[in-house]
Simulated assay, not measured.
Amino acid sequence: MKGNVYFRRYWQLYALLVLPLAYFIVFKYGPMWGVQIAFKDFNFFQGITGSEWIGFDAFREVFRMDDFYRTLRNTIVLNLLDLLVSFPAPLILAILLYEMKVVWFKKLSQTILYIPHFISWVIIGGIVYQVFGTQSGMINNVLTTLGFQAIPFLTDKNDWVLTYLLTGVWQSAGWGTILYLAALTGINRELFEAAEVDGAGRLKRIWYITIPGMKTTIATLLIINLGNMITIGFDRPYVIGNVAVRDYSDVLSTFVYRIGMESGQYTLATVVGLFQAVVGLIFVLGANYASKKLTDESIM
């Protein structure tokens, strides 16, 4: 009875949920109908329902492919390195911005940091090749002019990985900073004032007040990042990668693109996508459980 009264009183709030729910039903849950392609010998002309069932034959075929394990290794390694490099960056930037007292410089810094997030990876890829290209890149042109040897940023595996990671930090750190700054605004300022009166320096205030105040946000973002450990965005490795470093830049998303869109092997591509989804779910649940046990913070 109380639920009905509450619904009638705040029906506008429930009405606002209609469009988001419709979006998830149509664009998230609806496409799950196509998951059955992984268990069929999919024929484009016969459609999903008309294609012949083959059970787990496609899974066995994928798991026998050397390219699958190579791209799986690259996906995990690049995501782990990204987690180590890109995850702390927005946290550090948010703390630095929060501690700034000059308002105009703080706002200018925030704007400069946010802009890369809204730039397409196609444009970023062009910038990367213009700046880091071995033959015509700006940095190597300066180095060779000064008599130094050109650095193969995009053709040597180690240099390419470093370029990949730093480009990711530049593109994503600003957006992550917004989330941490939002968490920082929820910390009671009286805690900082009391700590300052007690003689705590800036570093101690950051360590004992600022970071613990963001514990929930840090735990949530870490769980999400760990859940995406087996998946990776298509844009960055595809745009920045090239033939010279394919053994290290080829990841599961580009592998799915090659066997699905280029080779027309939709069944195998669906198998890899389903594998990513299932393993990603396991990672999320595992990270959430560990976070709940260790820090008493979780997302569910």
Rank of each mutant, 00 (worst) to 15 (best):
T210V: 08
G260F: 03
D198R: 14
F192Y: 15
L203T: 00
T216M: 13
Y164I: 01
I232K: 05
A173D: 03
K157F: 12
T217I: 11
R189C: 03
A195K: 06
E196L: 02
K204Q: 13
Q265R: 12
V239L: 09
P152Y: 00
L165G: 08
R246Y: 08
I218F: 14
V256D: 00
I211R: 12
E190N: 13
T220E: 12
S263K: 07
G201A: 03
I259E: 02
A194Y: 08
W207E: 10
F255E: 01
G201L: 06
W160G: 01
T216K: 15
A244P: 04
L222A: 15
F192V: 01
T210F: 04
T216F: 12
V243E: 15
D156Y: 02
T267S: 08
R189Y: 05
G147F: 11
A194E: 11
G260Y: 03
L162I: 14
L154Y: 06
E190T: 13
T220V: 15
G260A: 01
L191H: 08
S263G: 03
I218R: 13
K215Y: 12
D247W: 03
T267V: 03
L221Y: 05
V161W: 07
N188D: 15
K204L: 14
F192W: 04
T167E: 09
L162E: 00
N242L: 07
E190Q: 14
I187T: 03
T145F: 14
M229C: 04
M229W: 04
G147H: 13
M214H: 08
F192D: 01
L222P: 10
M229V: 02
I259K: 02
G174L: 07
L221T: 09
Y180M: 03
N242W: 00
G174N: 08
E190C: 11
D198A: 12
E262N: 13
T254N: 07
T155P: 00
V243G: 08
I224E: 05
L166A: 10
T145A: 15
E193T: 03
W170M: 07
Y164A: 00
L154P: 04
W170C: 02
P212W: 13
P237F: 09
N158W: 10
L146A: 15
I206E: 01
T217R: 05
A183Y: 06
T177A: 11
I230F: 14
G168N: 08
T220Y: 14
L181G: 01
D250Y: 12
V169R: 10
